[in-house]
Simulated assay, not measured.
Amino acid sequence: MPDPISCCCLTGGGCQRCDLLVGLLRLHVIGVQRDDVGLRVESQVPAVMGCPACGVVAHAHGRQRVELIDAPCFAAPVRLWWRKRRWLCPEPMCPVTSFMEQDPDVAARRALLTTRATGWAIGQMRRQNASVQPGPAARLHLEDAVAAVKPVLEAAAADEARG
Rank of each mutant, 00 (worst) to 15 (best):
M1Q: 06
P2W: 06
D3T: 07
I5H: 13
I5D: 13
S6D: 02
S6T: 15
S6H: 10
C7Y: 03
C8G: 02
C9Y: 10
C9K: 08
C9S: 11
L10D: 10
T11L: 10
T11A: 13
G14A: 08
C15Q: 01
R17N: 08
R17Y: 11
C18A: 15
C18H: 09
L20I: 07
L20N: 03
L21N: 00
L21G: 02
V22P: 07
G23Q: 12
G23N: 04
L25E: 13
L25W: 06
R26N: 12
R26K: 14
R26Q: 01
R26W: 14
R26L: 11
L27T: 04
L27D: 00
L27E: 11
H28N: 05
I30Q: 11
Q33C: 06
Q33V: 11
Q33N: 09
D36S: 11
D36E: 13
G38Y: 00
G38P: 06
V41Y: 04
E42Y: 13
E42W: 11
E42S: 14
S43T: 14
V45H: 04
M49Q: 11
M49R: 15
M49T: 06
G50Y: 03
C51T: 02
C51Y: 00
C51P: 01
C51S: 06
C51E: 03
A53C: 06
G55W: 12
V56W: 10
V57E: 13
V57P: 03
A58P: 11
A58S: 13
A60N: 01
R63N: 08
E67G: 05
L68G: 03
L68C: 00
I69N: 04
D70F: 02
P72N: 01
F74V: 12
F74M: 15
A76E: 13
A76N: 12
L80Q: 11
W81G: 11
W81H: 15
R83S: 04
R83N: 15
R83H: 15
R83Q: 13
K84S: 11
R85S: 05
R86C: 12
L88N: 10
P90N: 02
P90D: 00
P90C: 06
E91M: 12
E91A: 08
E91Y: 04
M93D: 14
M93L: 12
C94L: 03
P95N: 10
T97F: 09
M100K: 07
M100G: 06
M100S: 08
E101V: 07
E101W: 08
E101L: 05
Q102R: 07
D103V: 08
D103R: 05
A107D: 08
A107R: 09
A108C: 13
A108M: 11
R110G: 09
L113I: 00
T114L: 09
T114A: 03
A117D: 06
A117S: 02
W120F: 03
W120D: 01
G123I: 10
Q124H: 10
M125N: 07
R126Q: 12
A130S: 14
S131I: 07
G135L: 10
P136C: 07
A137C: 14
A137T: 01
A138S: 15
A138Q: 13
R139A: 00
L140F: 02
L140R: 07
L142K: 11
D144G: 07
V146L: 14
V146C: 14
A147E: 12
A147N: 02
A148H: 09
K150I: 03
V152Y: 02
E154A: 13
E154L: 15
E154M: 15
A156Y: 05
A157S: 09
A158M: 00
D159A: 08
E160L: 12
G163F: 04
